[in-house]
Amino acid sequence: MNLLVVADPLEAFNPKKDSTLAMMREAQRRGDAVWACEPRHLHWAGGAGAAQAGPVRALCRHIQVLDAAKPWFSEIEQVERALHDFDAVLMRKDPPFDSEFFYATHLLEQAEREGACVFNAPRALRDHPEKLAILEWPQFIPATLVSRDMAQLRAFAAEHGDIIVKPLDGMGGAGIFRLRAGAGGSPDVNLGVVLETLTDWGRRSIMAQRFIPEIAQGDKRVLIIGGEPVPFALARIPQHGETRGNLAAGGLGVAQPLTASDRAMAEALGPTLAARGLLLVGIDIIGERLTEINVTSPTCFVEITQQTGFDVAARFLDALQAQS
């Protein structure tokens, strides 16, 4: 199989824990050719009178994955190729989901029309913003408000007393605040300034959720591949007085078997998301509540595999080959 991975610059990968690298390493182990490009390398030319009539192409790097941590790859060649020439194209660009990410999904969707097999499906990436996708399953989520109206947000804080507020386009725990009512139900002294900052004085929508005390036991990442849950989750446990469990915010990752509740939730969402073209999904669960659905570049492959022996990358490549 010829595999093209659309991702951030290879030089920026963290070889110790990068899930995209784990996918590449497993693909190479199976004898597949591994190629990479960045979203900025995607392009299309055509139209009446144009010298070229498509398809979507990219400047691609054919690489060999090495055993060493640094450098972790060597470049065999660099050549421009059409995306439909590859057996599979993986979109693994990290958030934020900004305008350039959005445009890249449209180019990848055009590549699909030209015969490329792209995972996750570009339209599905656009249709499932990672914070807002949970609204489709309200039975699983904590009390939640999405708004930019200051009065509504203040009323939510007053109703629930202890809340989390976060931007809709953040990642890695960036911009997340916990706000707690004081004695007698008085609002958190930082409530006003936090809401003003996150909403840009009412110009940007944010999410507010009731605080879930079970965060102390970890923010669990459950991976769903081809509609089926991986049997282990990675609980990202807050450290040093933090309320955020994100690994990027210093959380400790501890792999553990899925609870009955974790599995039931993953099995309820998995088939629907897979049918929409989402081969790989990472859902985040605190206690028994769903807090996020990650579709752009779900991680935690390496940590789960190292701690449990369950080869997540092999499971993923099996599913990828079955659909390519």
Rank of each mutant, 00 (worst) to 15 (best):
I76Q: 12
I76W: 02
A233I: 02
R263S: 13
V89Q: 06
N294F: 07
M1P: 10
V302I: 02
E100V: 03
R315V: 02
F73T: 02
K93C: 06
T299R: 00
K17S: 06
D262Y: 08
Q28C: 02
L191S: 05
Q217H: 12
T259I: 10
R113Y: 14
G202V: 04
L4W: 08
C300Q: 06
L198C: 06
V34K: 01
I285H: 05
M171G: 02
L3T: 01
G241V: 07
V118M: 11
G270Y: 08
R113G: 11
D262G: 09
I76G: 01
E159K: 09
A133K: 11
P96V: 12
L258F: 09
D87A: 14
R203D: 14
Q64E: 15
T308F: 13
S147R: 12
E77S: 14
N120D: 09
G185E: 11
A274T: 10
R289Q: 15
P257T: 04
N14W: 05
G46H: 04
Q78T: 12
A116D: 09
G192I: 05
E292M: 12
F310T: 03
A111G: 12
A116G: 07
K17R: 11
A50Y: 14
I141F: 12
F211A: 13
A181D: 02
I206H: 05
A12R: 12
V65P: 11
K166A: 03
R180I: 10
R29I: 01
Q321M: 12
I293K: 11
G218R: 08
E292Q: 13
D32E: 04
I141Q: 09
G185W: 13
A69G: 02
A155Y: 03
M91C: 07
F13M: 15
A22G: 00
V222L: 12
A158P: 08
M171Q: 10
F101I: 10
A233S: 13
F140Q: 13
H106E: 07
I176E: 01
D149F: 01
A7S: 15
A266H: 14
A319T: 05
F86M: 09
D67A: 14
D98V: 10
L125H: 09
G182V: 02
G46F: 01
A121V: 03
F310R: 01
K93D: 09
L3E: 04
F232Q: 05
G245H: 10
A121T: 08
D127A: 10
P55Y: 06
L83E: 05
G47S: 03
H240Q: 15
V5C: 06
R123L: 11
E75S: 07
D87F: 07
E130N: 00
